[in-house]
Design a protein around this nucleic acid. Structure first.
Lengths: 222, 222
DNA sequence: CAATATAAATTGTTCAACAATATAGATTCG
DNA sequence: CGAATCTATATTGTTGAACAATTTATATTG
């Protein structure tokens, strides 16, 4: 998703623009899970009216990025264990669908290959944040194999939520590092057209990843 | 989805209430695909302010029920062939996941059985609208097998969109009638725990259903 | 120190206004 | 007569202020 970003973009409606900026603040960690977004404060910060801001809140709330409590306000979502379990349930269904829909000539595969290479570079540099980001792109590309805008959008949603899970950790290094090798093997299977093996490798990846995320979450909650 | 409906419900925020009422107008056909929803008109109709209404529009737009064109306004979505193809792609992925996650003791199965019975009754009465409604409930229950709120929500979205496809037809009778038998067989396989057969039956169902919907859409566009 | 009453801040919603954009209507020209 | 252009009108985009309802913070009391 190239995101001709929120720097000069004054073309689209204000609400979309601000929604993008808040999303950026979310993934950059500028807004931590659980933080309250006061209407007054945020409206002043973005120099927009409360009315317009509330439209933005509705948008982001419907994407599970913000949590809305009537009469109390809007908060950055703090996905817990239940959310994690559900997110991985969704991932299993959608990504399995993607693997099974994969054809060895699909352009998404070459994108995945490229991303894997860049992950390796970032890993060598010790830039774990970047490793995590590219790893997510890798899996997003995998879902591109479905050629379904709606599945892409849905998957995008759970990935964004998963980012909020990671935002609750201080140390994300070991959450991605061990899995690069698994991704490499998975991609190889896909390029070979070996769907069955790829499916098994995906299952293995998701199981391990879910386990370590859940463990990290419990550790962070102590 | 029990929907303690929009009759006396003055508890939840106004936006949620109005969103529900518009959704009702959509599925009841009171608002046809392509219709424009003027802010002024709608705000007056529901006796709410334009600002509040716009919050509602953002909500429904994010659910693909309304289409939002900047500076032009909000319209009832008119899903075309591309949408139908994509919707069925999503259905294949999610419902296949559901069938494969099914355990013969899952409570959703008994709900499906009940719905199938009611479909039969409606069919006998020639109430095709009801047949369609219950048929959709049947498939929604199927996705309940995943025990995933997020998959349920996502599936809900595409079903709502599919309803807007049907709303473009005058005659929906033959779109559901032939498939009740297939549903019956599918349910039997699930109760037997025969996942493989169920998967094949689901694929068959979706293929045929998609074909007839696409055909009906082309007919309606002539 | 806990419970309660009061004050302050925040959300929920409305209204009125105006700039920016789009639609419809009237006018002109080929 | 039909196509292109200009103008007037209606609609959306956004703001600011206002006020009731609810929540949170503060002060008071037992």
């Amino acid at each position: 998703m190239i995101d001709a970003s929120h720097v000069p973009a004054e073309d689209q409606p204000l609400t979309a623009h601000v929604a993008g900026r808040i999303r950026d603040m979310l993934i950059s960690g500028e807004l931590s899970p659980g933080a309250k977004l006061s209407e007054q404060h945020m409206a002043a910060h973005f120099s927009i009216s409360r009315n317009t801001l509330r439209e933005v809140f509705r948008l982001l709330t419907s994407q599970n990025l913000l949590t809305y409590i009537p009469n109390r306000g809007v908060f950055v979502a703090t996905p817990g264990e239940a959310s994690v379990v559900d997110i991985y349930r969704v991932r299993r269904v959608i990504q399995k669908g993607a693997v099974q829909a994969a054809s060895p000539t699909h352009p998404a595969l070459s994108r995945m290959k490229d991303q894997l290479a860049r992950t390796g570079a970032a890993q060598a540099n010790g830039d774990w944040l970047k490793v995590g980001t590219i790893n997510m792109e890798f899996h997003r590309s995998m879902v591109d194999l479905c050629d379904s805008p709606r599945l892409n959008a849905g998957f995008e949603l759970v990935l964004a939520e998963l980012r909020l899970v990671f935002a609750q950790f201080d140390d994300t290094a070991h959450l991605h590092e061990p899995y690069i090798a698994l991704n490499k093997a998975l991609l190889a299977s896909l390029e070979r057209g070996d769907t069955d093996t790829a499916t098994k490798q995906l299952d293995d990846y998701l199981l391990r990843s879910e386990r370590s995320v859940l463990a990290a979450l419990q550790r962070a909650r102590s």
